[in-house]
């Protein structure tokens, strides 16, 4: 060793270098790995919410297809990736709670005292692209493109409607879970269309 160096200098230098490596690793994680994992979690959650809506549409179709009235059923929607812990990641995604979403129940095309029910999910993702899922009276749209068409019988449609006097418009946002309770009241004919009157509540 150089006889001019202070004793212990090489240890101090190595600590400084190790700290530098550590800082670079943390910076790379924060700038590259966390956003990529966040994008992944957001995309997986987008897909999961789409499947939740498809399942709800299929369950509602089952209810009016078998004319099963006066039984209350539930559909559950996860509003954000934080509420949707299905994937196993070794590194905890600390920023996944930053994304959230909104589910809203609103009225669509009116049919007298009834109106077609519109259930919308809008995401506010921190990393990945946003998704908008709309269930409109029986048909399912994703980002304004139709995924599942509504049911048609002969020349008339089967339309899922709510009684505007009994069911209020509602909107729920956040990072948790939203529950939709629905119950078939009866099926009413309107011209050639069949209106499936539901009672719904979003909470």
């Amino acid at each position: 060793m150089n006889k001019n160096a202070d004793p212990g200098l090489s240890e101090v230098v190595s600590v400084a270098l190790i700290l530098t490596v550590l800082i670079i690793t943390i910076a790379m994680t924060a700038l590259i790995a966390l956003p990529v994992m966040g994008t992944n979690a957001d995309r997986v959650h987008n897909g999961d919410v789409l499947l939740e809506f498809c399942q709800m549409k299929a369950d509602m179709d089952t209810v009016w297809l078998s004319n099963s009235t006066n039984i209350t059923r539930q559909a559950v929607f996860t509003l954000s990736p934080a509420a949707d812990r299905t994937e196993i990641t070794v590194f905890p995604n600390l920023l996944s709670a930053a994304s959230f979403g909104t589910v809203s129940l609103s009225y669509g095309i009116p049919h007298g005292e009834y109106a077609e029910v519109i259930l919308t999910y809008t995401s506010s993702n921190m990393y990945a692209e946003d998704i908008e899922i709309i269930y409109d009276g029986g048909a399912l749209f994703q980002n304004d493109r139709i995924l599942l068409p509504g049911s048609v019988s002969g020349s008339g449609r089967y339309v899922v409607v709510v009684n505007t006097a009994e069911v209020a418009e509602r909107s729920i946002g956040g990072a948790g879970v939203a529950t939709l309770e629905y119950r078939l009241e009866n099926i009413v004919s309107s011209g050639s269309d069949h209106l499936c009157v539901f009672r719904m509540e979003l909470q």
Binding site: V36, M37, N40, L51, D61, L148, S151, V152, S153
Partner: peptide, 26 residues
């Protein structure tokens, strides 16, 4: 329910993966 249709969804592939797949942590 003659002459009536209904529809369901089929997911042909899992939803995961990023543009930088194959690298560390991803």
């Amino acid at each position: 329910k003659t002459d009536t249709n209904a529809s369901r969804v089929i997911s042909p592939s899992p939803v995961q993966g990023t543009d930088l797949s194959g690298l560390l942590f991803l």
